[in-house]
């Protein structure tokens, strides 16, 4: 079961730091959402492998939009 990383707030995707296939640790930076001219870093909720990145730089996202899917590692 993959873990969905949801947007905690609406904004613009400012930077994307991961791509499908990457391995991430919990609390690694995944991407940055810009809202009200402020950069908000979105962190990995768990360690695992990135299955899919649903957004790209410049996208507008609403609150609770799915940003990234992560396959949690077993440990």
């Amino acid at each position: 079961m993959s873990e969905k990383v949801l947007a905690p707030l609406a904004g613009n995707i400012w930077q994307v730091h991961v791509k499908a296939g990457d391995t991430v640790e919990e609390d690694d930076d995944l991407l940055i959402i810009e809202a009200l001219k402020m950069e908000n870093i979105i962190y990995a909720p768990c360690s695992g492998k990135v299955i899919e990145v649903k957004v790209q730089k410049g996208d507008q996202v609403d609150e609770d939009a799915v940003l990234v899917l992560i396959e949690p590692s077993d440990d």
């Binding site: 707030l9 402020m38 870093i41």
Partner: peptide
């Protein structure tokens, strides 16, 4: 808390 988003 770096995962606390309160701006909205």
């Amino acid at each position: 808390d770096k995962k606390n988003y309160i701006i909205m």
